[in-house]
Lab assay of single mutants.
Amino acid sequence: VDYIVEYDYDAQHDDELTIRKGDIIKNVKKLEEEGWLEGELNGKRGMFPDNFVKEIK
């Protein structure tokens, strides 16, 4: 499942992704941690907030 970024987010920890509006995040999975998703961007896998992105259908 792929998501498109709607709002910029700067990573706060090493396991998070810095994302920018218009980025496409690939292979996204829901995490047990409420409010977070995990996906791949530019060869890096990491977490990001689910309210900054929208699923591409």
Rank of each mutant, 00 (worst) to 15 (best):
I25Y: 00
K26N: 10
E38R: 05
Q12K: 11
D23K: 03
F48H: 00
I56A: 08
I24W: 04
H13Y: 15
K29H: 14
G46P: 00
E33G: 14
L31P: 14
G39T: 01
E32D: 15
E33L: 14
Q12H: 10
I25G: 00
N27R: 08
N42R: 12
H13R: 13
I24E: 05
I56S: 07
D15S: 11
Y3H: 06
D23V: 04
I56M: 03
H13A: 11
G39A: 03
K26Y: 06
R45K: 07
L37H: 05
R45N: 09
L17Q: 01
M47P: 10
Y7R: 12
V5M: 03
V53W: 04
F48I: 11
E16H: 11
G22H: 15
M47I: 11
D10G: 07
A11I: 02
G43E: 10
Y7E: 09
L41F: 08
L37K: 06
K29Y: 12
D23M: 10
N42Y: 04
K29E: 15
I24F: 08
Y3L: 14
K57W: 01
L37P: 02
H13D: 14
M47N: 09
N51S: 06
G43P: 01
K29T: 14
G22I: 01
G39L: 01
Y9L: 03
N42A: 14
E40G: 04
V5S: 07
R20F: 02
E33Q: 14
N27A: 13
F52Q: 05
G43K: 08
K57I: 13
L31I: 13
E6S: 09
K21M: 11
K44D: 04
D14W: 15
E34A: 15
E40F: 06
T18H: 06
E38M: 04
D50L: 13
L37E: 02
L17A: 01
K21D: 05
G22E: 04
K29A: 14
E34H: 12
R45L: 07
V28T: 06
K26F: 06
E40W: 05
D14I: 13
D8V: 02
L31T: 15
G39D: 00
I19P: 01
D2E: 14
E38V: 04
E6W: 08
E32A: 11
Y3S: 04
E33T: 05
F52V: 07
G43R: 06
K30P: 10
A11F: 02
D23E: 14
N51D: 06
E16L: 01
K54H: 11
Y9K: 06
K44P: 02
G22L: 02
N51T: 12
V53K: 03
I19A: 10
E55N: 04
R20Y: 02
R20D: 01
D15R: 10
I25A: 02
E32G: 13
G43M: 12
D15E: 09
P49H: 14
E16T: 02
D10N: 14
R45G: 04
L41N: 06
I25M: 03
G46R: 02
L41P: 00
D23P: 00
E16W: 05
I19N: 00
N42E: 11
E38Q: 06
V5E: 00
R20P: 00
R45H: 09
A11D: 01
V5A: 11
N42L: 08
K54E: 07
D10K: 08
D10T: 11
H13W: 15
N27I: 05
Y7K: 09
A11W: 03
E16Y: 10
W36R: 08
D14N: 15
K44T: 10
Y9S: 03
D14P: 14
P49Y: 05
N51W: 06
H13M: 15
E34I: 13
T18A: 06
Y9N: 05
G35N: 08
A11G: 14
K57A: 14
P49A: 06
I4L: 10
D2G: 05
